[in-house]
Amino acid sequence: MEVRTIKVFTTVDNINLHTQVVDMSMTYGQQFGPTYLDGADVTKIKPHNSHEGKTFYVLPNDDTLRVEAFEYYHTTDPSFLGRYMSALNHTKKWKYPQVNGLTSIKWADNNCYLATALLTLQQIELKFNPPALQDAYYRARAGEAANFCALILAYCNKTVGELGDVRETMSYLFQHANLDSCKRVLNVVCKTCGQQQTTLKGVEAVMYMGTLSYEQFKKGVQIPCTCGKQATKYLVQQESPFVMMSAPPAQYELKHGTFTCASEYTGNYQCGHYKHITSKETLYCIDGALLTKSSEYKGPITDVFYKENSYTTTIK
């Protein structure tokens, strides 16, 4: 009895394709271990004539594949690729409408935090270190965002349907971005203890939790000093293409032309909904596939993004 075979390709990165001759009487799992086709788990399936010449994702289970996976995804987590594939199996079914010149995501599976993050990423200057993220990001900007969303979920250790947080998501993504040249110098002034300067680099240099107003941050924000008295913390120097200011959701007025974009969060910790506000020729609110415009805006804002380049204080 002759062994019926077909020729397929296996890959971990969709760049390096490895030619395989597979036995049609055995499952993919018996031949390769966990195997995925377009995100779908085909591990328990036997090869079919229609699979001839198709590319299958496999887990990096030998040295060659491990090197290829690390170079593309910059992670050695053995569960990463499987999590990416199972997320992709959902995100490829989502709709990605162009809204006001940006790629958004039609609401499904509690994905409003991903839509808000995706919209924000198209408006701030950011370059990702893992080629996987950078490639998928370019495709997302062009309207094909399924891979990018699935990668975000995998890097953030999230599953489809789980509630997510924009600030946490951005923080994970910033860790995989090139923020080497970003720098922030802060000064804390206390009447009792004097003053202390701190220099922050990388992710810490672009994120701040405690106030939404970048102007206020430049002037000074009140913080408790270690001595128990009130101290003032203010920005001395900022070198970065953008800054992200966050605070627990509270009524906040966004003035046209003073910011790049913002995240609105309605609801409580267990259950809520994100919308995205962007400042173009007027203010726009993007909620999944829905767009509304207004000249002014007041609502429960939790993150505001500002364009920056270089700032030095005039406070002496």
Rank of each mutant, 00 (worst) to 15 (best):
L37C: 11
N110H: 04
A250F: 07
Y73L: 03
T232S: 07
K275T: 15
N111G: 00
G257Q: 06
G164R: 05
Q98V: 14
A69T: 08
K44L: 12
S279D: 14
H273K: 00
I286Q: 00
Y252I: 14
F259P: 03
V3C: 12
T103I: 10
R184H: 02
I286M: 06
Y265P: 02
F9G: 05
T302P: 00
N178E: 13
F128W: 13
Y137T: 03
I105M: 04
K219P: 01
H276T: 05
K316E: 15
D13C: 05
E52P: 07
H176S: 05
K54S: 13
L254Y: 00
S246Q: 01
L179E: 03
T11R: 04
D38W: 10
Q197L: 09
L119I: 06
I105Y: 03
K233A: 13
P60M: 06
C227R: 01
N16E: 06
G299M: 03
V21Y: 15
T75L: 07
A108H: 05
T226R: 15
F9H: 14
E264C: 07
G228A: 01
Q122R: 03
Q222C: 10
Q222D: 10
P241D: 09
N100H: 13
T258N: 10
V243Y: 02
Y57S: 07
K92E: 06
G257C: 05
V185F: 01
P249H: 03
K233C: 14
E296I: 11
C149A: 09
K158I: 05
G288C: 01
V236E: 06
Q196E: 10
E162D: 13
K7F: 11
L254R: 00
V3I: 13
H176W: 15
F174N: 01
P47K: 05
T5L: 12
S104F: 05
A87V: 05
Q197N: 10
H90T: 11
N49Q: 12
T199C: 12
A231W: 00
A250M: 09
F148H: 03
K255Q: 12
C261F: 00
Y214R: 02
F174H: 02
V166S: 06
I45E: 14
T260Q: 08
G82C: 14
D13I: 06
V21R: 13
H48C: 12
V8S: 06
L102P: 03
Q216T: 08
K46I: 12
A145N: 03
M209E: 10
S213L: 03
D109E: 11
A132Y: 03
L37A: 12
E168T: 13
T266V: 10
T5A: 13
P224S: 14
L118D: 02
L102M: 12
V99K: 12
Y214G: 01
G210W: 05
G164W: 05
A69H: 10
E253N: 10
P241C: 06
Y265R: 04
D77Y: 04
L119K: 02
Q196S: 13
H51Y: 06
C112I: 04
T211H: 08
Y172F: 10
E144S: 11
L88G: 03
Y234V: 09
V236Y: 08
W107Y: 05
V21E: 14
C227A: 01
T302K: 01
Q123R: 04
T5M: 13
Y274P: 00
G267T: 11
V304G: 00
Y113T: 05
E308Y: 04
L283Q: 01
S181I: 06
L65A: 10
I15W: 09
T91A: 06
N61S: 14
V221K: 05
D165K: 02
N129S: 09
N187C: 14
T198L: 13
K316A: 15
L59A: 11
A205P: 03
T43A: 14
R4A: 13
R66S: 10
C285V: 13
D165L: 03
V58C: 10
A142L: 13
Y172W: 10
L59R: 08
R167K: 07
K7T: 14
M245V: 00
Q216M: 10
Q175V: 05
V8P: 06
F32C: 12
K93M: 09
N16Q: 09
D287N: 03
N129V: 08
A115G: 06
Y274K: 01
W107G: 04
K7V: 09
G82N: 10
E308F: 08
L102Y: 08
L119F: 02
K280P: 00
T64F: 09
A262F: 00
V304Q: 00
S171T: 13
P241L: 05
P300C: 15
Y84K: 04
A87R: 04
K233P: 00
E215G: 05
P300K: 08
G288P: 02
G299D: 04
E264M: 11
G39P: 04
T55S: 12
H18T: 08
F242D: 00
Q195H: 11
A136T: 08
T258C: 08
P60W: 09
F70W: 10
T282V: 12
K275S: 11
K293F: 10
Y172A: 10
L291F: 15
T103M: 05
N110A: 05
S246M: 00
N111S: 03
L88T: 04
G194H: 02
S240T: 05
V243E: 01
G39N: 08
N49T: 13
L118M: 08
L173I: 10
E264G: 07
C261W: 00
L17R: 11
L17C: 08
S79K: 14
S295M: 12
N147Y: 09
V58A: 07
A205R: 01
K275P: 00
D109T: 04
L283W: 02
S294T: 14
A150K: 02
K92H: 07
A205M: 00
T35S: 12
F305L: 07
A142F: 11
V166E: 01
F242V: 01
M244L: 05
C227G: 00
K280D: 10
E68F: 03
P300M: 13
I105A: 06
T19K: 13
S25V: 10
Y284N: 08
H276D: 00
E239Y: 09
M209W: 15
Q30I: 11
R4Q: 15
G210M: 00
I301W: 00
P300H: 11
P248S: 10
E162F: 01
L17E: 09
C261T: 02
P47H: 01
A154F: 02
F174Y: 05
K201R: 15
F70L: 15
A231I: 02
M170K: 00
N89P: 07
S79W: 08
G220D: 05
K183I: 10
D180A: 09
T75D: 08
V189L: 09
G39F: 10
E68L: 06
V304D: 01
K183S: 09
L121P: 03
Q197K: 12
L81T: 08
R83I: 06
K218A: 06
V22P: 10
R167V: 02
H90P: 04
V304Y: 01
Y208W: 09
G267R: 06
H74A: 06
A177T: 10
T192Q: 12
F305V: 11
Y306L: 01
T103S: 04
Y265W: 02
H176G: 01
D23Y: 09
L179I: 04
F148M: 13
P248Y: 14
N49P: 14
D41W: 05
F80G: 04
K46W: 14
A142K: 15
T211L: 08
G101V: 03
A142G: 11
A231S: 06
F148V: 04
D135P: 03
Y57G: 06
T211G: 08
F32T: 12
A262Y: 00
V42E: 06
